[in-house]
Design a protein around this nucleic acid. Structure first.
Lengths: 261, 261
DNA sequence: AACATTGTTTATGTGTGATGAACGACACCA
DNA sequence: TGGTGTCGTTCATCACACATAAACAATGTT
């Protein structure tokens, strides 16, 4: 007849609360929420998304604002440019970024399409580098962080062991971003096997309705380091160009810089 | 007879300790310390630099590691690649970055030298974008965050009001990075005036002995948005090329994209 | 002008971050 | 092999600062 009125908050899933700073984690989750948002967000909206009190959200946003990690225009927040600085420094020494980057730039000028480099971190995608053709006007929307619904994500998943893939899916789940998203595990597994055979992953409106992409994994003696992709709208990426030309270009691009790693 | 035995901790210098999260601030300062370090650092070393206990440094590093904000190789830490992801997203919508970037890329291919885009935030430099020639082998060392000792920093300072410059110098000081660093205010002020006249700032070993750079401010109806720079070693950047050619190229580059802002 | 919705501030207790000291893991050298 | 120094990790403790709800102010909306 009870369990009283209060809910039993079981924080026990994270046993090492002794070795981590909780406040920092929530600040980071604030940043992540801002990163996922396609637009600027206010205090209340962000608090709702994270299921934390308004006052908490406010305090963290304010703190992050003062250090330049978030930007405030009026009463709306977005990621701050200090992060771009830190990001530049972070990848400056990364060997994969350093060798792959010029080839990705070349890829962009050859295909006249946005392209980028993605790696995996704890089951989620990390955009290491992204770029667009110079005259591209529209804003390039960021990749979803879920691996199962993007071309580079699937390319990476396909190069991992089945066990690791299951682990990742257990952790992250398979959110259905669009009606084309593969949210069934066995269907995904089958796709991944085909990707692994060909060495090419396609994305057809699986994370955004009108977006398409092609990606190839970067593998070095058995393990996958990341994936290179070319993206675009479905009206520009179709038929032979999408199915054959871009895959060929991508494969040869990766083949070209792989020895340098 | 009282105020008891305890010390009155006067945190009052930061009056808004009610509106900010202390733990987040220290986590951020950990990131900043890692950013400033030219190499990977261990727990003890970082604790010393920040004058905080080892155990505190450990806990923050561990927290930041678990969220991918720092990287751990053995027992050494450095900035993590998640920051590159967030940085990409942060600047993706920034108008200055979006318009300036292709021109900076072109600048690199024309000059065959590293180049970048810097903005100012709370009196310190923020590297919004940096890039190097494709075949460049050596790692590009990051700019100092202090404005007074770098070409882009001085270009920005020169475009600010004297009062604002004084404010900044009061906050940040004028650390002497090398023996050529201008650490005297009046000498700096004089330099800034000359920079403002010509619209060009030079850097001759003021933040690193062998480094040189040229920078021009990006100004729009009176206010400065940032600065574009070209950098290199003193043996490659000298005489006419350094004194005249690069300045000319930089000025025309900025002039070219300024109307687009 | 009444209302709804947002951001900001305040007051409170309790969890937790900061801390120093103890512990363990290594490396180096005698 | 044992000794010494240095490092990272864990532990125990306590003040206090984070998280929270609720009140307040500032918006925007009807």
């Amino acid at each position: 007849m009870f369990m009283s009125t209060s809910v039993l908050l079981v924080y026990m899933s994270e046993p090492d609360s002794q070795r981590t700073v909780n406040a920092t984690q929530t600040s980071v989750s604030v940043l992540e929420a801002l990163a996922e948002a396609d637009d600027t967000v206010g205090v209340t909206e962000l608090a709702n998304r994270l299921s934390i009190p308004k006052s908490t959200a406010y305090k963290h946003l304010n703190t992050l604002y003062e250090v330049g990690f978030v930007n405030k225009t009026g009463r709306k927040y977005e990621l701050g440019l200090r992060l771009a600085d830190l990001g530049e420094r972070a990848r400056a020494t990364d060997p994969l970024y350093r060798t792959a980057r010029p080839h990705i730039d070349q890829l962009v000028s050859v295909t006249d399409q946005p392209a980028g480099l993605v790696i995996e971190h704890e089951g989620l995608a990390v955009d290491l580098y992204r770029t667009t053709p110079a005259r591209q006007i529209q804003v390039q929307l960021p990749n979803s962080r879920y691996l199962h619904c993007s071309a580079p994500g699937k390319a990476i998943l396909a190069s991992l062991s089945s066990e690791r893939v299951m682990e990742i899916l257990d952790e992250t789940g398979l959110p259905q971003k669009t009606d084309r998203t593969l949210s069934d595990r066995s269907a995904l597994r089958e796709k991944l096997d085909r990707i692994d055979e060909r060495g090419i992953a396609f994305e057809r409106g699986e994370q955004r309705p009108s977006r398409r992409a092609v990606a190839v994994p970067i593998t070095q003696n058995g393990s996958v380091l990341g994936a290179v992709y070319v993206a675009g709208t479905s009206d520009r990426l179709k038929s032979k160009r999408f199915e054959e030309d871009l895959p060929g270009i991508l494969i040869s691009t990766v083949k070209r810089f792989l020895p340098d790693l």
